[in-house]
Protein backbone atom coordinates (compact mmCIF):
# COMPACT_ATOMS: atom_id res chain seq x y z
CA UNK A 1 0.00 0.00 0.00
CA UNK A 2 2.73 2.44 0.95
CA UNK A 3 4.47 1.98 -2.38
CA UNK A 4 1.30 2.81 -4.30
CA UNK A 5 0.74 5.93 -2.20
CA UNK A 6 4.36 6.89 -2.74
CA UNK A 7 4.17 6.45 -6.52
CA UNK A 8 0.91 8.37 -6.70
CA UNK A 9 2.16 11.22 -4.54
CA UNK A 10 5.30 11.59 -6.69
CA UNK A 11 3.24 11.23 -9.85
CA UNK A 12 0.93 14.08 -8.86
CA UNK A 13 3.89 16.26 -7.93
CA UNK A 14 5.90 15.43 -11.09
CA UNK A 15 2.88 15.65 -13.38
CA UNK A 16 2.13 19.18 -12.16
CA UNK A 17 5.13 20.56 -14.07
CA UNK A 18 3.89 19.07 -17.34
CA UNK A 19 0.26 19.95 -16.62
CA UNK A 20 0.90 23.67 -16.11
CA UNK A 21 3.15 23.94 -19.18
CA UNK A 22 0.64 21.95 -21.26
CA UNK A 23 -2.22 24.22 -20.13
CA UNK A 24 -0.24 27.23 -21.33
CA UNK A 25 0.38 25.53 -24.66
CA UNK A 26 -3.34 24.69 -24.95
CA UNK A 27 -4.08 28.44 -24.76
CA UNK A 28 -1.54 29.28 -27.48
CA UNK A 29 -2.58 26.45 -29.82
CA UNK A 30 -6.30 27.11 -29.34
CA UNK A 31 -5.79 30.56 -30.90
CA UNK A 32 -3.73 29.00 -33.70
CA UNK A 33 -0.16 29.63 -32.58
CA UNK A 34 2.26 26.71 -32.26
CA UNK A 35 4.68 27.70 -29.47
CA UNK A 36 7.76 25.46 -29.57
CA UNK A 37 9.50 27.73 -27.07
CA UNK A 38 8.01 26.09 -23.97
CA UNK A 39 11.32 24.42 -23.11
CA UNK A 40 13.07 27.80 -23.09
CA UNK A 41 10.24 29.49 -21.18
CA UNK A 42 10.40 26.80 -18.49
CA UNK A 43 14.15 27.30 -18.12
CA UNK A 44 13.66 31.07 -17.79
CA UNK A 45 10.84 30.63 -15.28
CA UNK A 46 12.84 28.11 -13.27
CA UNK A 47 15.89 30.30 -12.94
CA UNK A 48 13.78 33.40 -12.24
CA UNK A 49 12.00 31.60 -9.41
CA UNK A 50 15.29 30.59 -7.80
CA UNK A 51 16.85 34.05 -8.10
CA UNK A 52 13.68 35.74 -6.79
CA UNK A 53 13.47 33.59 -3.65
CA UNK A 54 17.17 34.27 -3.01
CA UNK A 55 16.27 37.96 -2.78
CA UNK A 56 12.92 37.61 -0.98
CA UNK A 57 12.50 34.11 0.50
CA UNK A 58 8.85 33.66 -0.37
CA UNK A 59 7.82 31.01 -2.92
CA UNK A 60 4.80 33.04 -4.07
CA UNK A 61 7.11 35.94 -4.92
CA UNK A 62 9.35 33.56 -6.90
CA UNK A 63 6.39 32.12 -8.76
CA UNK A 64 4.98 35.59 -9.50
CA UNK A 65 8.31 36.83 -10.85
CA UNK A 66 8.49 33.77 -13.12
CA UNK A 67 5.03 34.64 -14.45
CA UNK A 68 6.22 38.19 -15.16
CA UNK A 69 9.29 36.96 -17.04
CA UNK A 70 7.00 34.56 -18.94
CA UNK A 71 4.75 37.48 -19.89
CA UNK A 72 7.73 39.48 -21.17
CA UNK A 73 9.19 36.66 -23.29
CA UNK A 74 5.71 35.58 -24.34
CA UNK A 75 5.07 39.13 -25.57
CA UNK A 76 8.35 39.04 -27.53
CA UNK A 77 7.33 35.69 -29.09
CA UNK A 78 3.83 37.01 -29.82
CA UNK A 79 5.25 40.19 -31.33
CA UNK A 80 7.36 38.05 -33.70
CA UNK A 81 4.74 35.43 -34.59
CA UNK A 82 1.43 37.31 -34.30
CA UNK A 83 2.22 40.96 -35.01
CA UNK A 84 5.07 40.41 -37.46
CA UNK A 85 3.69 37.00 -38.57
CA UNK A 86 7.13 35.34 -38.68
CA UNK A 87 7.44 31.54 -39.02
CA UNK A 88 6.14 29.98 -35.78
CA UNK A 89 8.37 26.89 -35.82
CA UNK A 90 11.51 28.99 -36.23
CA UNK A 91 10.55 31.55 -33.61
CA UNK A 92 9.66 28.74 -31.19
CA UNK A 93 13.00 27.01 -31.67
CA UNK A 94 14.73 30.37 -31.36
CA UNK A 95 12.89 31.04 -28.09
CA UNK A 96 13.94 27.62 -26.78
CA UNK A 97 17.61 28.30 -27.62
CA UNK A 98 17.49 31.87 -26.32
CA UNK A 99 15.64 30.92 -23.14
CA UNK A 100 17.72 27.84 -22.31
CA UNK A 101 20.99 29.64 -23.08
CA UNK A 102 20.05 32.74 -21.14
CA UNK A 103 18.76 30.78 -18.14
CA UNK A 104 21.94 28.71 -17.84
CA UNK A 105 24.13 31.81 -18.23
CA UNK A 106 22.22 33.83 -15.64
CA UNK A 107 21.72 30.85 -13.33
CA UNK A 108 25.36 29.82 -13.13
CA UNK A 109 25.99 31.27 -9.63
CA UNK A 110 22.81 29.55 -8.34
CA UNK A 111 23.45 26.13 -9.89
CA UNK A 112 23.10 23.24 -7.47
CA UNK A 113 22.09 25.35 -4.45
CA UNK A 114 18.85 24.33 -2.77
CA UNK A 115 16.00 26.82 -3.19
CA UNK A 116 15.97 29.45 -0.43
CA UNK A 117 12.21 29.03 -0.10
CA UNK A 118 9.83 26.42 -1.43
CA UNK A 119 6.14 25.65 -1.53
CA UNK A 120 4.97 23.82 1.59
CA UNK A 121 2.40 21.09 1.74
CA UNK A 122 -1.17 22.17 2.31
CA UNK A 123 -2.87 19.31 4.13
CA UNK A 124 -6.59 19.22 3.52
CA UNK A 125 -8.33 18.04 6.70
CA UNK A 126 -10.31 14.75 6.64
CA UNK A 127 -9.68 14.09 2.90
CA UNK A 128 -5.98 13.59 3.54
CA UNK A 129 -6.81 10.80 5.98
CA UNK A 130 -8.37 8.68 3.23
CA UNK A 131 -6.58 5.37 2.66
CA UNK A 132 -4.06 5.23 -0.23
CA UNK A 133 -5.36 8.31 -2.12
CA UNK A 134 -5.48 10.65 0.87
CA UNK A 135 -1.79 11.37 1.24
CA UNK A 136 -1.20 11.30 -2.51
CA UNK A 137 -3.90 13.74 -3.52
CA UNK A 138 -4.70 15.92 -0.53
CA UNK A 139 -1.34 16.50 1.05
CA UNK A 140 0.39 18.42 -1.73
CA UNK A 141 1.62 21.99 -2.18
CA UNK A 142 -0.92 24.66 -3.04
CA UNK A 143 0.10 24.88 -6.70
CA UNK A 144 -0.94 21.25 -7.23
CA UNK A 145 -4.57 22.11 -6.43
CA UNK A 146 -4.37 25.17 -8.66
CA UNK A 147 -2.89 23.24 -11.56
CA UNK A 148 -5.05 20.14 -11.41
CA UNK A 149 -8.39 21.79 -10.64
CA UNK A 150 -8.71 25.54 -10.69
CA UNK A 151 -6.70 26.57 -13.76
CA UNK A 152 -8.12 23.86 -16.09
CA UNK A 153 -11.64 24.57 -14.78
CA UNK A 154 -11.25 28.29 -15.51
CA UNK A 155 -9.80 27.64 -18.97
CA UNK A 156 -12.52 25.08 -19.80
CA UNK A 157 -15.25 27.41 -18.64
CA UNK A 158 -13.93 30.40 -20.58
CA UNK A 159 -13.22 28.42 -23.75
CA UNK A 160 -16.34 26.29 -23.90
CA UNK A 161 -19.01 28.12 -21.90
CA UNK A 162 -18.66 31.81 -22.77
CA UNK A 163 -19.18 33.92 -25.88
CA UNK A 164 -15.65 35.23 -25.54
CA UNK A 165 -14.40 31.62 -25.53
CA UNK A 166 -16.26 30.90 -28.73
CA UNK A 167 -14.56 33.90 -30.33
CA UNK A 168 -11.20 32.65 -29.07
CA UNK A 169 -11.75 29.21 -30.59
CA UNK A 170 -12.97 30.78 -33.83
CA UNK A 171 -9.69 32.68 -34.09
CA UNK A 172 -7.83 29.37 -33.89
CA UNK A 173 -10.12 27.52 -36.29
CA UNK A 174 -10.69 30.11 -38.99
CA UNK A 175 -9.09 33.52 -38.41
CA UNK A 176 -10.43 34.94 -41.69
CA UNK A 177 -14.02 34.14 -40.76
CA UNK A 178 -13.46 35.44 -37.23
CA UNK A 179 -12.01 38.64 -38.63
CA UNK A 180 -14.96 39.26 -40.90
CA UNK A 181 -17.27 38.71 -37.92
CA UNK A 182 -15.52 41.61 -36.21
CA UNK A 183 -13.45 39.56 -33.74
CA UNK A 184 -10.05 41.21 -33.07
CA UNK A 185 -7.87 38.31 -34.32
CA UNK A 186 -4.46 39.83 -33.68
CA UNK A 187 -5.38 41.08 -30.20
CA UNK A 188 -6.82 37.72 -29.11
CA UNK A 189 -3.87 35.77 -30.52
CA UNK A 190 -1.38 38.11 -28.89
CA UNK A 191 -3.12 37.98 -25.49
CA UNK A 192 -3.55 34.22 -25.31
CA UNK A 193 -0.06 33.41 -26.59
CA UNK A 194 1.39 35.74 -23.95
CA UNK A 195 -0.70 34.29 -21.10
CA UNK A 196 0.15 30.78 -22.28
CA UNK A 197 3.85 31.65 -22.21
CA UNK A 198 3.47 32.96 -18.64
CA UNK A 199 2.03 29.58 -17.59
CA UNK A 200 4.99 27.86 -19.28
CA UNK A 201 7.42 29.97 -17.26
CA UNK A 202 5.30 29.30 -14.17
CA UNK A 203 5.78 25.58 -14.79
CA UNK A 204 9.51 26.21 -14.65
CA UNK A 205 9.18 27.93 -11.28
CA UNK A 206 7.02 25.04 -10.02
CA UNK A 207 9.85 22.73 -11.08
CA UNK A 208 12.52 24.62 -9.15
CA UNK A 209 10.43 25.77 -6.16
CA UNK A 210 8.13 22.81 -5.51
CA UNK A 211 9.40 19.70 -7.28
CA UNK A 212 13.21 19.48 -7.38
CA UNK A 213 13.63 22.09 -5.56
CA UNK A 214 16.83 23.68 -6.86
CA UNK A 215 18.28 24.96 -10.12
CA UNK A 216 20.87 23.17 -12.27
CA UNK A 217 21.86 23.26 -15.94
CA UNK A 218 19.75 20.48 -17.38
CA UNK A 219 16.91 20.63 -14.88
CA UNK A 220 14.16 21.18 -17.46
CA UNK A 221 15.35 18.08 -19.35
CA UNK A 222 12.91 18.14 -22.24
CA UNK A 223 9.79 18.58 -20.10
CA UNK A 224 8.80 21.54 -22.29
CA UNK A 225 8.79 19.27 -25.34
CA UNK A 226 6.83 16.57 -23.53
CA UNK A 227 4.27 19.27 -22.63
CA UNK A 228 3.93 20.22 -26.30
CA UNK A 229 3.40 16.56 -27.20
CA UNK A 230 0.85 16.20 -24.39
CA UNK A 231 -1.30 18.94 -25.89
CA UNK A 232 -1.62 16.97 -29.12
CA UNK A 233 -2.27 13.76 -27.14
CA UNK A 234 -4.94 15.60 -25.12
CA UNK A 235 -6.76 16.87 -28.19
CA UNK A 236 -6.26 20.52 -27.09
CA UNK A 237 -8.58 20.00 -24.10
CA UNK A 238 -7.51 21.39 -20.70
CA UNK A 239 -8.65 18.52 -18.47
CA UNK A 240 -7.32 15.89 -20.87
CA UNK A 241 -3.97 17.69 -20.80
CA UNK A 242 -3.96 17.53 -17.00
CA UNK A 243 -4.92 13.85 -17.06
CA UNK A 244 -2.18 13.12 -19.60
CA UNK A 245 0.33 14.96 -17.44
CA UNK A 246 -0.66 12.78 -14.49
CA UNK A 247 -0.06 9.64 -16.59
CA UNK A 248 3.43 10.91 -17.34
CA UNK A 249 3.85 11.73 -13.69
CA UNK A 250 3.22 8.03 -13.00
CA UNK A 251 5.87 7.02 -15.54
CA UNK A 252 8.36 9.45 -13.99
CA UNK A 253 7.50 8.21 -10.50
CA UNK A 254 8.03 4.59 -11.56
CA UNK A 255 11.51 5.60 -12.70
CA UNK A 256 12.25 7.18 -9.31
CA UNK A 257 10.92 4.18 -7.39
CA UNK A 258 12.97 1.87 -9.62
CA UNK A 259 16.13 3.79 -8.77
CA UNK A 260 15.36 3.97 -5.07
CA UNK A 261 14.61 0.24 -4.85
CA UNK A 262 17.53 -0.87 -7.00
CA UNK A 263 15.56 -2.51 -9.76
CA UNK A 264 17.94 -4.41 -12.05
CA UNK A 265 17.63 -1.72 -14.76
CA UNK A 266 20.31 0.97 -15.11
CA UNK A 267 19.04 4.44 -14.10
CA UNK A 268 19.60 5.98 -17.58
CA UNK A 269 17.15 3.47 -19.02
CA UNK A 270 14.56 4.37 -16.38
CA UNK A 271 15.11 8.03 -17.25
CA UNK A 272 14.27 7.24 -20.90
CA UNK A 273 10.75 6.13 -19.93
CA UNK A 274 8.98 9.53 -20.11
CA UNK A 275 10.37 10.24 -23.59
CA UNK A 276 9.59 6.78 -24.95
CA UNK A 277 6.19 6.92 -23.25
CA UNK A 278 5.44 10.25 -24.96
CA UNK A 279 6.33 8.86 -28.38
CA UNK A 280 4.18 5.79 -27.75
CA UNK A 281 1.34 8.04 -26.59
CA UNK A 282 1.57 10.02 -29.83
CA UNK A 283 1.56 6.98 -32.10
CA UNK A 284 -0.66 4.38 -30.45
CA UNK A 285 -3.96 6.32 -30.15
CA UNK A 286 -3.97 6.82 -33.91
CA UNK A 287 -4.35 3.08 -34.31
CA UNK A 288 -6.39 2.27 -31.23
CA UNK A 289 -9.06 4.98 -31.10
CA UNK A 290 -9.43 6.11 -34.68
CA UNK A 291 -12.90 7.55 -34.00
CA UNK A 292 -11.70 9.48 -30.96
CA UNK A 293 -8.86 11.08 -32.92
CA UNK A 294 -11.38 12.64 -35.28
CA UNK A 295 -12.79 14.83 -32.54
CA UNK A 296 -9.29 15.43 -31.17
CA UNK A 297 -7.92 17.12 -34.27
CA UNK A 298 -5.89 20.31 -34.09
CA UNK A 299 -7.49 23.75 -34.54
CA UNK A 300 -7.69 24.27 -38.31
CA UNK A 301 -5.75 27.53 -38.22
CA UNK A 302 -2.88 26.12 -36.14
CA UNK A 303 0.58 27.18 -37.25
CA UNK A 304 -0.60 29.46 -40.05
CA UNK A 305 0.08 33.20 -39.70
CA UNK A 306 -3.00 35.25 -40.56
CA UNK A 307 -2.72 37.91 -43.24
CA UNK A 308 -5.82 39.96 -43.73
CA UNK A 309 -4.83 41.00 -47.25
CA UNK A 310 -4.46 37.37 -48.40
CA UNK A 311 -7.93 36.43 -47.27
Amino acid sequence: MDIITGILATAVLAGGVLALAALGEVLAERVGVFNLGVEGLMALGGVTGIIAVTIIPNPFFGFAMALVVGLVFGAIFALATVTFRANQVLCGLALTMLGSGLAVTVGKPYSGMPAKAQFDKVIIPYLSDLPILGRALFSQNILVYLIYLIIPAVISFVLFRTRHGMNVRAVGENPAAADSAGIPVTLIRFTYVTIGAALGAGAGAYLTLAFVPSWSDGVVAGRGWIAVALVIFAGYRPFWAVFGALLFGVITALGFVGQARNWPIAPPFLSMLPYLGTIAAMILPVFVWKRLRLSFTAPAGLGIPYFRDER
Partner: peptide, 15 residues
Amino acid sequence: SAVLALTGLIMLFTA
Protein backbone atom coordinates in the same frame (compact mmCIF):
# COMPACT_ATOMS: atom_id res chain seq x y z
CA SER B 1 25.14 28.70 -23.02
CA ALA B 2 25.72 32.38 -23.82
CA VAL B 3 26.52 31.31 -27.37
CA LEU B 4 23.35 29.22 -27.51
CA ALA B 5 21.37 32.26 -26.38
CA LEU B 6 23.03 34.43 -29.01
CA THR B 7 22.24 31.81 -31.67
CA GLY B 8 18.61 31.85 -30.59
CA LEU B 9 18.56 35.64 -30.82
CA ILE B 10 20.03 35.56 -34.34
CA MET B 11 17.48 32.91 -35.35
CA LEU B 12 14.60 35.02 -34.00
CA PHE B 13 15.80 38.10 -35.87
CA THR B 14 16.33 36.05 -39.04
CA ALA B 15 12.77 34.72 -38.87
